[in-house]
């Protein structure tokens, strides 16, 4: 870099790279609409894209995902809302194409019952186990009553103790 020509060439190359990169980024701009006919439409759009799953990344909703598919789905949601579709229409449109998996809030069905009820069942089992364990432990540690022989021995020990103690 000591000669100025090399430095200029490096600068030009760097500028070209930056420019090329900008073009590339511009081509793949994710869909992010600003034009809504009403604030209510925009609010519904925001809610819906939060609740729909991106199938490419699977653990992201289509609001957060940069995947091209997510961008396409956001465009569809926007188009449908602007065309007067209800939220149910939009969700149905997605479910028809991608199945219930596309919904972050799955419907209550025979196939999803484990999903809805499972956590409560597990929690109930846990609570029952916890209480039975606690009760068992309390019983185990409760003082067992002494029988006659043990009581006599205890008394003897206590008396002996008193006698052996040096008098004050």
């Amino acid at each position: 870099m000591s000669n100025p020509r090399g430095a200029i060439r490096a600068l030009v190359v760097a500028a070209a790279l930056v420019a090329a990169n900008l073009v590339g980024v511009a081509e793949a701009t994710p869909f992010d609409p600003k034009a809504f006919s009403s604030p209510e439409h925009e609010a519904r759009y925001r809610t819906l894209i939060e609740e729909l799953r991106c199938l490419v990344c699977q653990n992201q909703n289509i609001a957060d995902s940069d995947a091209e598919l997510a961008s396409d789905l956001r465009r569809e949601v926007h188009r449908m809302i602007e065309e007067g579709a209800t939220n149910d229409d939009v969700v149905d449109f997605m479910v028809v194409r991608y199945g219930d998996f596309v919904r972050y809030r799955p419907p209550l069905r025979a196939s999803t019952i484990a999903l809805w009820v499972g956590p409560f069942v597990l929690a109930a089992i846990g609570i029952v186990l916890l209480f039975t364990q606690l009760r068992r432990r309390r019983q185990a540690t409760a003082e067992a009553p002494l029988d006659a022989r043990e009581r006599a021995r205890l008394a003897a020990l206590l008396d002996g103790d008193r006698e052996e103690r040096p008098s004050a």
Partner: peptide, 8 residues
């Protein structure tokens, strides 16, 4: 395979 989502 988590990518295999059952097709509706």
């Amino acid at each position: 395979n988590p990518r295999e989502v059952p097709s509706p």
